[in-house]
Nucleic acid binder design. Structure first.
Lengths: 212, 212
DNA sequence: ATCAAACCCACATGTTGATGTAGTTACTTA
DNA sequence: TAAGTAACTACATCAACATGTGGGTTTGAT
C-alpha cells in the first residue's frame, strides 16, 4: 500500500469517534484523518476548506441527515466512491438501501479497529468488505430460505402460473381457461398463500428462475 | 470455537488439494479432513462410508459434475448447508449461480490458507465470507457502475429492472432507491418504451431470459 | 352423514400499475 | 444561448390487482 489515504469519519458518538481517530493515528495507512459528527458538518468543512477525502467511514443514525442519505450527496458532489458504513443496524432494509446508494463496505459496530483498517485497505484495492453477518444476509438475498413445498400446487394452480408467466392478465387467463375472472383471482390468492408471496411479479420471477 | 468440524475438500488439482489438506491438519479447528477430486467420488464415499461432513470446500471446474451443480445435490441429499467455493472463476455468472444455488462462501484461489480457515470459522458461526473482489461484484449487483451505453438502458433503469426481477412493487423500489413512486413510474415507462414492452411481466421475462 | 380438497362464482373495497401531462435541476455539448 | 440528457417530482385517470367475504358443486375418504 504505497499511497497513504485521507479518511473522514462521520460519527455522532464522541467515544466511538475519538476511539477510532486515536487508533487510526497509530496506523501508517492514513495521511489525514478528519472527523465530524454529522453529514452536514462534514460537507460544510470539506467544501469550505477544500479537503481531499479518499474514504468516508460513516454511521447511519446521525443527527440531521442519515448516513445513507449522505452517500448519494458524497458521491455526487465530492466524487468520493469509497464509502463505508459503520453502524449498529443490521436490518435488511438499511443494508440494501446503503448498498444501492453506493456504499462499498458495511461494518457492524464492535468490529475491532484492526479489522476496520483491513477493510479500508481491501476497499481501496478495489474489493469490498462486509461484516460476516451482513455478508450472510446479502447472500441469503439470492438464496432465500426454503419455501413451502411447491409440489402442493394443484394442477389448476400450475396452469394459472403458466398463464401469468405468459403475460396474460386475469381477464385473459379466464378466457383461456374458460373460467370467470373471480375464479382466477381465487386461485391466485391460493397460489400466493402456498408460495408465500404477495404479487404476481414474485410468482413470475420464481417460476422463471426455476424455483417452482 | 468449541466444536471441531469435519470438512471435505473437493479439488481435482493434486498440489492444491494436498496443500490445503496438509495445512488443515495443523489446525485444531478440524476433527476430520476428507478430500476428493470430484463431486461424484465425494458422493460415492460419503454415502458408502456414511461420513459426517459439516463443511464442504469445493472447486468449480471439476471432472464430471461442476462444483456448482454439486451444491444442490449436497444440500438436498446430505443436508449440508455450509458449502464454500474455492475457485479461479470470478465471473458474475458463476458467482451468482453458486450463491443462488446455496453457497455460503466464495473464495478465490490464492487466498492464503489462514484466511481460508478464518472464512470457515466465520461461516460456521452463521456469517458468510467472500473474497473482496467477489464481495465487490455482489455489491455492484445492487449498484451497477455507470456504463457508456453498451445498451440503451441507463444505470438507473438497470437498477429498476433488477428490482422488478426481484419482485419488488413500485413502492418498495422507491423505498429502496430513495426516490418517489412517481419517479419509479417515470423510469418504468421509459424502460417499457426502450424495450418495447407493456408490462412488468415482459420486462422480467426478457431479463431472466438474458435478452437485456 | 360429515369433512376436506379442488374447482367454481359473485360482490366489495382499497391499492397498485400503466399512461399521459406538466414541471424542475444540473450538467454537457453544439 | 439553446438543446439534449439524465434524474427527479407531481397530478390525473382508468385499468388491473390484491384481499376479504359469502356462496355453490363434486369427489373421495372417514
Amino acid at each position: 500500500m504505497e499511497k497513504r489515504i485521507n479518511i473522514s469519519i462521520i460519527e455522532d458518538d464522541y467515544v466511538i469517534r475519538n476511539g477510532i481517530e486515536v487508533y487510526f493515528q497509530t496506523q501508517e495507512l492514513f495521511n489525514e484523518i478528519y472527523s465530524f459528527e454529522s453529514v452536514e458538518s462534514f460537507f460544510e468543512t470539506v467544501e469550505k476548506e477544500k479537503l481531499i477525502v479518499d474514504v468516508v467511514l460513516t454511521d447511519i443514525g446521525l443527527p440531521g441527515m442519515s448516513g445513507i442519505e449522505g452517500i448519494k450527496l458524497i458521491k455526487e458532489k465530492l466524487k468520493i466512491t469509497d464509502i463505508i458504513m459503520l453502524t449498529v443496524f443490521k436490518d435488511e432494509n438499511r443494508i440494501f438501501k446503503s448498498i444501492c446508494a453506493g456504499a462499498t463496505g458495511y461494518l457492524l459496530k464492535g468490529t475491532p479497529f484492526p479489522e476496520i483498517t483491513e477493510a479500508i485497505k481491501i476497499i481501496r484495492l478495489g474489493g469490498s468488505y462486509m461484516s460476516p453477518a451482513i455478508a450472510r444476509k446479502v447472500i441469503e438475498y439470492f438464496n432465500p430460505p426454503k419455501q413451502k413445498n411447491e409440489s402442493e400446487l394443484s394442477s389448476r394452480e400450475r396452469q394459472i402460473i403458466q398463464a401469468l408467466v405468459d403475460g396474460l392478465s386475469y381477464k385473459m387467463i379466464g378466457d383461456r381457461l374458460s373460467i370467470s375472472i373471480d375464479t382466477v383471482r381465487f386461485h391466485i390468492k391460493n397460489i400466493y398463500l402456498k408460495l408465500q408471496v404477495n404479487s404476481k411479479t414474485e410468482v413470475i420471477s420464481k417460476s422463471l428462475k426455476g424455483e417452482i
